[in-house]
Every structure is written in structure tokens, then in C-alpha cells.
Design a protein around this nucleic acid. Sequence first.
DNA 1: ACCGGAGCCTGTTAGC
DNA 2: TGCTAACAGGCTCCGG
Length: 271
Amino acid sequence: MPELPEVETVVRGLRGPLIGRTVRAMWYGWPGIIHSPDPAHFAARIAGQTFRAVDRRAKYIVAALDDDLLVIHLRMTGRLYVTPRDAVHDADRWLYFRLDLDNGQQLRFSDARKFGKVYLTDSLARIAPNLGPEPLADDFTAANLAALLAGRRRAIKALLLEQSFIAGVGNIYADEALFLSGVRPTRKAGKLTRAECEALAANIRKVLQRSIDTGGSSISDWINPDGQDGGYQDERMVYARTGQPCKVCGTPIKRITVGQRGTHYCPKCQS
DNA sequence: ACCGGAGCCTGTTAGC
DNA sequence: TGCTAACAGGCTCCGG
């Protein structure tokens, strides 16, 4: 599923095809995909606007148009791709939103689970008012992480998934970062030692950056805009490796539920 | 303020 | 082999 690295990969792939292109028309095949404004206003407002920039904040794709921001969240199974108008793709089976561009291309948004959302707004803060720091930004440090964790009694894994806590970390990279840091997902967040905070901050950055460098994970329904698989799935230490031997010590990887999420860890390497 | 649980969805997988 | 039920999960909302 798309997390920060996958969204970043999508954003980088969309800049070339989108920037400078003008929207001719909007189409949708499922009203739930359009969060706001209502579809009629959305269509009327976006027509004629030109893409000026495509960026990412947390797991949101934020495309700047002349007068508005087109914001897209892929959630679980969303796919976003630019394609010639008459081309057919496998993912079109779940196509629920589309923009016609001025060069005969289309921006298509496909989403098998219908969890994804599209917004047209003047401010991302209006949509997501409580996003935490970007883990790959310079101001994300171990000291900041320790301060965020202080006094919190929830399991560290649950807190890592909280977007108001750290923006962009999802289930895969939370499990991977905790493994690399030797910390059990069930540990009370406020009980982590300073050394563990240091390790965790560094490893969150490490797994996210490494995944971006390899083009994103290919777990589940993820594909990047070119249709190429990402490379990070081969580097997973624990996620979706239940029962398989730990790559460090050979102990079978355990799967539990933490904060309503499947959670994977090595009972020997993580304490 | 904090925390846990239900609900949104449907393709895939486990179980009979 | 063929059917059904359980499962997956990012995020929002709601209640304690």
C-alpha cells in the first residue's frame, strides 16, 4: 500500500507529464471518490486551470493549479497515472476519476477498494489540519522524537502510524523501522530509552529513504506510474514474513495485532 | 488530552 | 472443486 516512499515516487513521475498541462474536463464514476467540493462545482472549477507544480506532504499528493490545489490521497489501493486518451490499462477496471488534459492525455485515478479521495481546495491545512513533521526533513531529529514520545502510554507501533505524530509512516515502514531499532512494537512509547529514540529516528529515515531510492515497495496493489515494480519488497526484514526465519537470527517472525493493524516482529531481536 | 474501537470498501485468501 | 466467510488497512468519526 502506498506510504511516503510510494507517494513520493508517484509525485516524481507525474511532474513531467502534468506540469504545464491544462485541464479540459473532469469525469468521475463513483461519487465517494470526490471528497470536496461537490462534483459539479469540482468539474466547473478545475476546467481551464493549468498544473504548475506537483508535490507531496505526508501521504497526500498536492498538485498546484492556477487557483486551487488538486489534492489526492491514494489510501490503500489508489493508482494514479497519465496515459493517452485511448489507451487501456489493467487498473482501468477500477477507474473512478479522470481528467482530460489539453494534449490528448488523461490523468486517471483507479482505486479497487474505493478508499481514495480527491479534493480541490485552496489549502491543504483545510483538509489535513494536524499533520506531524516530515521524517525526511532536516528538523526531524532524535530529540524531537523523544519529546513527542514523552509521557505517551500507547504502543510505539500505534503511535508511529498516527499521522499527527509523524507524517507519512505506514504499516510496512513502521514494522521495518522498529525491527532495525530492536524495539518491540508493543513497547509503551514513553518508555523508550534515549538510545532507542536515536536508533528509531535514524531507522525511520533510513527505511523511507532506501525505499524511495529503490522505487517503492510492491506489496499488495502498489505499482509506480511506469508500471514497474519497486525494489524494497526484497529488503523487508519482517513485514508480511510471518513464520519465516528472521534474516538476522533465524527465529520465526511473529505476527500480532497492535492498534487494529497487523504487526510483524522478531521475538529475539526486538525487546 | 488521550486512547481504543467501528466503519468505510472489495479483491484475495482461508476454510469448509 | 466450489462456495462462503474472514481478512487486509489509511483514515475519520465516535464514545469513554
